[in-house]
Design a protein around this nucleic acid. Structure first.
Ligand code: MN
Ligand code: MN
Ligand code: ZN
Ligand code: ZN
Lengths: 142, 142
DNA sequence: TTAGTAATTTATAATAGTTCTAAACTAAAT
DNA sequence: ATTTAGTTTAGAACTATTATAAATTACTAA
């Protein structure tokens, strides 16, 4: 629930010029109560259907990647043919519903802390992500 | 370390005809001591460089997917632009070295059991996968 | 064996997500 | 105002993957 002037500052502070396109994307992504997951295609469709503005696909890609680089979005990879982005940038895990293709955040009461006992020598852990795939109880095992 | 006649049975038992191409792919994938991770491209290159046989890319895709469907391979998705396959079909987790783009299996002494306290109602867990991204200790935080 | 058939392979086209290009446009600095 | 560097854009290019449809091969049953 941030307002326009806050987005302007946020962008300026990140070295990104507050253009009309970026502000619209900020509004769509960050001006809401709850975080959510989206694909580039979702976002493009959302903007073109619900607003008069037409933002080119290239700009949507550029902006989403810029926001990811600045740490305002996280990227979640579930399958090789689609990339999901997450406006929840806190450390958390996911359920992936294979029936609906929907990503669902895990709370700490759903997945306990992952215990990493040994790491690769000379390397630093940059992230730890758990993906729990779930599917409808019926129609299993092909 | 399986031999040719074993691959023939394995394929027949799966309802797949033991063609020259499938047997060659079995040999490359399964006739070794240790499991490993590969991309379709790795596999295609491996076959074309190390053997006289020329297997079309379409057949490599078809075969790898057939093997995955039969449970002889697991697919691991790390980034949206490349899919990895794993000849280790046991439940296990991975380190992903962002410097070298290499996947490394985790042993149970490296990552403890993931504790899933609550699951989505009406859904069955089909897999639980942990991916630990690691990178060189120097040159962090862009 | 020898057809007959269904499965498989293959080259190639098509598709889809994403990145690149280079020209037009815009925000900020002087 | 003018300049400059950053940004947007349409469209081309790229890349991984899937689809197509004709040729080939593996199996079946006479
Ligand atoms: Mn793709
Ligand atoms: Mn792609
Ligand atoms: Zn999330
Ligand atoms: Zn593995």
């Amino acid at each position: 629930m941030l307002k326009n002037s806050e987005f302007v500052s946020k962008l300026r502070n990140s070295g990104l010029r507050p253009t009309k396109q970026r502000l619209k994307i900020c509004e769509v992504l960050f001006n809401r109560d709850k975080t959510f997951h989206f694909t580039i295609n979702d976002l493009a469709k959302n903007i073109s259907e619900n607003f008069n503005e037409k933002i080119s696909l290239a700009t949507i890609y550029n902006t989403v990647h810029a926001f990811k680089d600045k740490g305002y979005l996280k990227e979640i990879t579930i399958s090789s043919d689609k990339s999901y982005f997450d406006t929840n940038i806190t450390k958390h895990h996911h359920f992936y519903d294979e029936d609906t293709n929907l990503l669902i955040d895990c709370n700490d009461n759903e997945i306990g802390k992952v215990n990493i006992k040994n790491n690769i020598t000379g390397k630093k852990i940059s992230s730890v992500e758990v993906l729990v795939r779930v599917a409808s109880d019926t129609q299993n095992q092909s």
